[in-house]
């Protein structure tokens, strides 16, 4: 399954890219965003996990949007990914 990820607000530095389309390995169960986070942290994160993850979610201060919608309206980590979904990670943890 293909999923598009976009990184902004400094998250681009964590992944060394602003945008990437990934082919997720096939799985017997559906992929949730929570599983995507762990997969990204393991496979594509360029820094330590604490910069991106806290517990089973993103580090507080990183906003997540799925298909241009706040993930807090979509049950956050429990959202089940569909083919060609776009997930945007936006950090607010930067100075002015």
């Amino acid at each position: 399954m293909k999923v598009n990820c976009e990184y902004g607000g400094g998250c681009d530095l964590l992944f060394g890219t602003k945008q990437e389309t990934y082919e997720l390995p096939s799985s017997s169960t559906a992929w949730t965003v929570g599983e995507l986070l762990l997969w990204l942290a393991e496979k594509h994160l360029k820094t330590t996990q604490e910069n991106f993850l806290q517990g089973d979610s993103v580090r507080p201060g990183i906003l997540v949007m799925i298909n241009e919608m706040d993930w807090e309206l979509l049950d956050t980590t429990n959202y089940v990914l569909k083919e060609n979904d776009t997930v945007i990670f936006f950090s607010t943890l930067h100075g002015g």
Binding site: G8, G9, G10, L13, L63, M65, D70, F90, S91, T92, L93, H94, G95
Partner: peptide, 18 residues
């Protein structure tokens, strides 16, 4: 959060490097 979302949906260009 709302400031960042506002900037995002209004497509305002801003600088984000720490």
């Amino acid at each position: 959060k709302e400031i960042v979302m506002y900037a995002y949906f209004k497509k305002l260009i801003y600088f984000t490097t720490e």
